[in-house]
């Protein structure tokens, strides 16, 4: 039995459709990523799967149980970390963890092995109020709290939003450790570069899933030539490329512009165009973001 099976799920809030005909499955001990910008419907989908919302249409089963009928079972056995770390800011680190342990009828000691690696990093601050922690430390504490009852399935809603780059990197390596414990992880993120950390990803946009695949699989489906352009003035160059007739797409990517020319232009024509506009460029390989933009 797959830990998560969603079948044709739709959710409407009054007249707006937040989710439309979503179907996917997640395998055991897999890190499954929902990748998409704000407003794509990631949080709504999470809330339907963890029994907080009832879908307008479709059914979902989590840990083999129906999300509507058997919500109590699911609530006992999943861990959930909402988008805004739900910590009690006036309680200390240890008190937060203790509280979540108590309401799940367990104790910190009982499942210490599972959270040890994560909690050790913040244990030195265990008497500090959660409200005074940095974003990265809050994130670690929230993850510890979500793990304290040894859930079989973990829902992490944008766990890396508002967290510094180093902490984000650490966080993903922690998730990979958890996978070794046999925990299935469903994680959402608006950061495309994090997609590569997942075993499989679903690219979401306006309530639809555009594609589900391994990150490498998604990238391999990109069937255009892609160039990285390094201009002196990036905004001027972007304007120029966007208005040019040979451009298919052009978007800023860090210090460069990822540029995809139309298929019917030859290498010579491209070279000529670049030279006449005084632009440095080289052939580049696409990433998830390029694929995402291409699918939109």
């Amino acid at each position: 039995m797959k830990p998560v099976i969603a079948e044709n799920i739709s959710k409407h809030f009054k007249s707006t459709a937040a989710l439309q005909h979503i179907s996917f499955e997640v395998d055991k001990a897999e890190i499954f990523g929902l990748i998409g910008p704000d407003g794509a419907g990631k949080t709504t989908l999470f809330r339907i799967l963890n029994t907080l919302l009832i879908p307008t249409e479709g059914t979902a089963s989590v840990l083999g149980q129906d999300t509507i009928r058997d919500y109590k079972y699911i609530r006992h056995h999943v861990g959930y970390m909402p988008g805004r770390f739900s910590l009690y800011e006036d309680l200390s680190v240890e008190e937060n963890l203790n509280f979540y342990a108590t309401i799940f009828q367990t104790s910190i000691e009982e499942n210490y092995s599972l959270i040890e690696k994560i909690y050790k990093q913040i244990e030195a601050f265990k008497d500090r109020k959660a409200g005074n922690l940095s974003g990265g430390m809050k994130q670690k504490l929230a993850l510890s709290c979500a793990l304290i009852h040894k859930p079989k399935l973990l829902f992490l809603d944008e766990p890396t939003t508002g967290v510094d780059a180093v902490s984000r990197k650490e966080f993903w390596s922690m998730l990979k450790d958890l996978k070794q414990h046999g925990i299935t992880i469903l994680v959402s993120t608006p950061y495309m570069d994090e997609a590569e950390q997942c075993d499989r990803v679903a690219l979401m946009q306006s309530g639809h899933i555009m594609d589900i695949d391994k990150p490498a699989g998604i990238v391999s489906k990109f069937n255009h030539r892609l160039f990285a352009v390094y201009p002196e003035n990036i905004y001027e160059a972007l304007q120029l490329l966007k208005t040019s007739p040979i451009t298919h797409t052009a978007q800023i990517f860090g210090q460069s512009i990822h540029w995809v020319p139309k298929e019917n232009f030859s290498e010579a024509e491209i070279l000529n165009f670049m030279h006449s506009n005084n632009l440095n460029y080289k052939v580049d390989s696409p990433n998830i973001e390029d694929c995402f933009m291409e699918m939109m």
């Binding site: 963890n50 029994t51 805004r84 800011e89 009828q105």
Partner: peptide, 11 residues
Amino acid sequence: MGTMEVLLISP
């Protein structure tokens, strides 16, 4: 504060 969400998804 969003903590109600977590309380709901608990025993």
